[in-house]
Nucleic acid binder design. Structure first.
Length: 280
DNA sequence: AAGAAGTCCTGGGCGC
DNA sequence: TGCGCCCAGGACTTCT
């Protein structure tokens, strides 16, 4: 699942390849993935646009195009963006092909077809609700221990649910939430508003360190994720809890447990992440 | 209005 | 060996 470190890695691998390229044509074999504008308008509008810059916001990848346009991708569960030569075989689940002026291609590949694609003017970002309502970047200056304490205060939802809420914090998904909670020693089912000041501080640090490490290791390839060059990441070998149900905790050896929290499979160590708060 | 549940989708893993 | 069932989950919609 491409979360913040994966989208950041994809951006990094595509940046030097795409900037300065012109999109000559788009082939859309699954047009329903194009949400804005209509697929017909998308295909005609994008023709001839030059890619000026690429950046990431939360789990969104944004491409600045000439004429003040933004081409935006959200990969959801299984989306991939691949830079390939035109003669590379078009594999199953390839849904969109951007033909570039150097003869190479940018291909959008998505097994479960949850991914979404948008083309808007810079002033029309409000049309993409999930993008404009995003909370702060976890690695940016707005994400401070004080900010985290404020948004968690009074929340009845689980801490897991709060961290998955993109309006509170942008870019975390199931993998990095579980890893962050483990590093901070906090049970995923704890009420968000019940965390102590020390726990909030530890959680803030844990989120930052997990994401920084995730980026350093070029993302987590559990199943589908590959970067813009088709390469897998390396962070899956460093996961402490995600996908390790029943295996020994890396800190204390206790078998890790799996529970359904906030509608997601959640793996945690019952000893290092006790449910009972340490006496408020 | 916050929070929870249902929804979309396909391949892989499992039981029999 | 093969069929059918269930699971994975990001974010939107629907419900309570």
């Amino acid at each position: 699942m491409p979360e913040l470190p994966e989208v950041e890695t994809i951006k990094n691998t595509l940046l030097s390849k795409l900037v300065g390229r012109r999109i000559m044509k788009v082939t859309a074999t699954l047009p329903r993935l194009i949400k804005i504008p209509t697929p017909e308008k998308f295909v005609s509008l994008i023709k001839g646009k030059e890619i000026k810059h690429l950046f990431r916001r939360g789990k969104y990848l944004l491409l600045n195009l000439s004429g003040g346009y933004l081409l935006i991708f959200h990969l959801r569960m299984t989306g991939r963006l691949l830079y390939l030569p035109a003669d590379a075989p078009v594999v199953k689940h390839t849904h969109l092909i951007f033909h570039l002026d150097n003869g190479e291609q940018l291909r959008f590949h998505d097994l479960r077809t949850f991914g979404t694609i948008y083309l808007v003017q810079e002033g029309e970002l409000g049309l993409i609700r999930g993008l404009v309502t995003l909370g702060p970047e976890p690695l940016g200056p707005r994400f401070t221990p004080d900010y985290l304490r404020e948004v968690l205060a009074g929340r009845q939802t689980t801490i897991k649910g709060a961290l998955l809420n993109q309006e509170l914090l942008a870019g975390l998904g199931n993998i990095y939430v579980d890893e962050s909670l483990f590093r901070a020693g906090i049970h995923p089912a704890r009420r968000a508003g019940s965390l102590t000041g020390d726990e909030v501080f530890r959680l803030h640090r844990a989120i930052r360190s997990v994401l920084e490490e995730g980026i350093r290791y070029r993302g987590t390839s559990v199943r589908d994720y590959v970067d813009g060059e088709g390469k897998t990441g390396g962070f899956q070998e460093r996961l402490a809890v995600y996908g390790r149900r029943g295996q020994p905790c890396v800190k204390c050896g206790t078998p890790l447990e799996l529970a359904r929290i906030a509608g997601r499979g959640s793996v945690y160590c019952p000893r290092c992440q006790p449910f009972a708060a340490a006496a408020d």
